[in-house]
Design a protein around this nucleic acid. Sequence first.
DNA 1: ATAAACTTTCAATAATTCTTGAAAGTTTAA
DNA 2: TTAAACTTTCAAGAATTATTGAAAGTTTAT
Lengths: 168, 168
Amino acid sequence: MELAAAKLKFIEAWGKLGSEWGINRTMAQVHALLLISSEALTTEEIMEELSISRGNANMTLRDLIGWGLIEKQHKAGERKEYFFADKDVWNISRQVAKERKKRELEPVLKVLNELSTVVGDEKDPEFKTFKKSVNDINKLAVNVDKTLETMLKAEESWFWGSVLKVFK
Amino acid sequence: MELAAAKLKFIEAWGKLGSEWGINRTMAQVHALLLISSEALTTEEIMEELSISRGNANMTLRDLIGWGLIEKQHKAGERKEYFFADKDVWNISRQVAKERKKRELEPVLKVLNELSTVVGDEKDPEFKTFKKSVNDINKLAVNVDKTLETMLKAEESWFWGSVLKVFK
DNA sequence: ATAAACTTTCAATAATTCTTGAAAGTTTAA
DNA sequence: TTAAACTTTCAAGAATTATTGAAAGTTTAT
């Protein structure tokens, strides 16, 4: 396979994966493009490469900065802003884990805690089932939260070394 | 908090979480409803409870069966079908992991393998960057795949025991 | 057979999410 | 200043995804 075709295929695959995981397709594609670019790119170049509008490019780039996945670069003597992605896949994973934990897991933990204060008749099967499900989910969520917390602090080699060794 | 209010809140939260993770909101809500029901419910009851149409309920229930999260139940002397959810949160996690691995991770691994056959000029920075990113992502994906594979076979207490012990 | 009870399908519609592009805003150089 | 270079905003429109509901399909009892 040729480089040009491979790039297109990568961008397409990354976009699809993103959209399956609740991440805007264009955002995932812009990220993909910057991931495989050795040079930082301008908004203009990104618009061109992915055939998207200026508005879309601008918002998407802003979002990616908000996710901590890309950064702006200024080149001496130029007005234009250049964008480049952190290429370290472990950093990317941690960054995504960190943001999704904050944006999604933590709000859910908060709700689960509120729900565990529910009061009712301990003899009522509906009440018992509700309490058990909520408690079980709460325990799982706490375990996931702890594991993510560890991941956020960990070095990649240590993390996978530990995980995969334990699992033989 | 009262049981009725808590149920609504749980269904809403589960639906929101689902939609953030690429799962249809209604599907997550139907799952939530069955998770906290001590009794199996009919299509009619589900439509009523969540204010959704018959068509929507039918398709959603079929999808949930396809995900292995709920099952049909037949009651003696009745024509109606009843639906109930597996309440074991570890089973649910494994089932979701199994399906998403099959539907999403495996196709991506396939593409990444194809992409690693790319040919080009080893001196070209664009080529080198592409190859490195694809290889790094490939390695990560393989590690995730292995970990999920272990999870699918594991008992809950063993799994979290191991993971959390390693991470102190 | 027939009809009642129940389930499934799917074209039409609604709701949501994404994208555009032009206007407004900002910064810099001269 | 002024104007060119560049970025941001956001209302309108496009695209995508989800939902409805009525008709068609199926099963069971009589």
